[in-house]
Design a binder for these strands. Structure first.
Lengths: 116, 116
DNA sequence: CTGCCGTACTACGTCTGTCGTGGTATAATA
DNA sequence: TATTATACCACGACAGACGTAGTACGGCAG
């Protein structure tokens, strides 16, 4: 099965993370597992990419972090989406529809989609 | 009207250029105009982005350049797609379908598409 | 009780693609 | 004569992704 290269999904890492945070606070490891699951193993976000996205988005005010100790005694940094993050997410969704429209003008129509 | 940011289309500049070259050789200025037209003004590729894509793709063997003097006496560098470029293009089309599938898992369904 | 795997990060430096700035040069048009 | 459109290139900055490596703790097998 092919996996998606980072260059094509690059513009959507933040969007994916924010989508997951809209369901409630979460933390790095969980987010990365959920991305893998939701994408059906087609996209595996790199740890460094994920954590640098967190710090960038926190700096931009799209998410907020807080510390919490889990049941197993482990300390975690949780992230919560802010209202600025919410708007940013919705903007990105709009942009996605636009991008889809544009890109498809440049995609050959005759190509069959291979399921793996 | 909103315009697409380079970050989201980033992985598809090469694809768009190759798509246009599949209809026959072309050159920088023409390609950039065609991208603007085909995207209905929604995406305007920057000159430097375009020309650096040309040199990168030539280095990678996806396109070949040759000089020609147009009717109006102007010298131009034309580019022609190679068979390696053709395969690369088709791969990118496949990847597009995959990317679309993945990204849409992370896009809110409730969003209306605004036509400008 | 020891080593290893899974969890949960962080730091640092490299690389690639995009883009801002600015420059060259010719032809057509006002 | 000046401006606009065409046609391209060099240079350096920058951001995001990523490779590598390291810390630290819990649980479990041997």
């Amino acid at each position: 099965m092919s996996v998606i290269s980072s260059d094509v999904i690059r513009g959507y890492n933040d969007t994916m993370i924010l989508y997951l945070l809209r369901n409630g606070p979460s933390y790095g490891y969980e987010i990365s597992k959920k991305i893998r699951e939701l994408s059906e193993e087609k996209y595996l976000i790199k740890e460094t990419t994920l954590y640098s996205a967190f710090s960038r988005m926190e700096k931009n005010g799209f998410i907020e972090s807080f510390q919490e100790t889990a049941d197993n005694g482990k300390k975690r940094t949780y992230y919560r989406i802010t209202s600025a993050g919410e708007s940013y997410y919705l903007d990105k969704c709009e942009e996605w529809y636009l991008t889809k429209e544009v890109v498809e003008h440049f995609i050959s129509q005759g190509i069959e989609m291979h399921k793996d």
